[in-house]
Amino acid sequence: MERVIVCVKPVPDPKVWDRLRMDPVTKTLIREGIPSVINPLDRHALEAALAIKDVSGAEVVLLSMAPRDARPVLREALAMGADRAVLLSDKAFAGSDTLATALILTEAIRRIGPFDLICCGNYTLDGSTAQVPSQIAEFLGIPNIMHVAHMELEQDKRMVVTQKIEQGYVKLAAEPPLLLSFTKKANKPRFLSFLEILAAEKREISTWTNTDLNLDESRIGLGGSPTKMADMLLREKGRQGLRLEGSPEEIAHQLANKIRQLGFI
């Protein structure tokens, strides 16, 4: 294979999610002081691409739509072994829903040029829609497979892909060009080596704006997104909140009574 493109998204570090607060007036999340990491499943997508690079020498290109301050996160992904990165940053992209995001990423992929494979994470931690990859594939007019738990390369670029479903799995025969969305079952992302970290310093991160992509602004960003956020609420919990304290015997007795009273025994 000659080129594999990996879509990666920086997300707020899940370890500090409990520090996320909502601004009660603007109804937006206050992200200040929350560090970003690569979306965890995107590391599995990258590992799959790097494994292909290991056997075929393919060029691995990272693609990310994110604010400009996402560069350190891309640098880290480069240090895993990717060859170069393209960062899409423009005010005009802000507020894009999944359809608009997929449109922007698709246009960038066309600009990067011919490819054999596009690797994505199965879902992101923050948006968690799992929609962007299928939509990129549709816009590019290529097939896609989600929930990839295993990928095997065969002769002449053919692949056998294992897709996890609720009650088992499906094995599919596929060939490039193709888009795959990876789960964490697919592989174990490699560790960073010191040499690669140094080498990554020299690898290029190109930043493209909409001047480069030239997309009609009525199709991107907040205004170009078909879905609109009408409201955002903290989840409220209307529960009885009765407390039960005492000796374990007493508690067990009262709980058993409650369970009988609810009709379960």
């Binding site: 829903d97 999944t98 359809l99 997929a102 968690s128 829609t129 799992a130 929609q131 962007v132 990859p133 299928s134 939509q135 594939a137 549709e138 816009f139 896609n144 497979i145 989600m146 929930h147 997104s225 078909p226 879905t227």
Partner: peptide, 16 residues
């Protein structure tokens, strides 16, 4: 897998 692909083909919105 199916819903987003269909939404993109119809160029409409989809919530997850």
């Amino acid at each position: 897998e199916l819903a987003p692909r269909l939404a993109a083909r119809l160029k409409t919105g989809l919530s997850a």
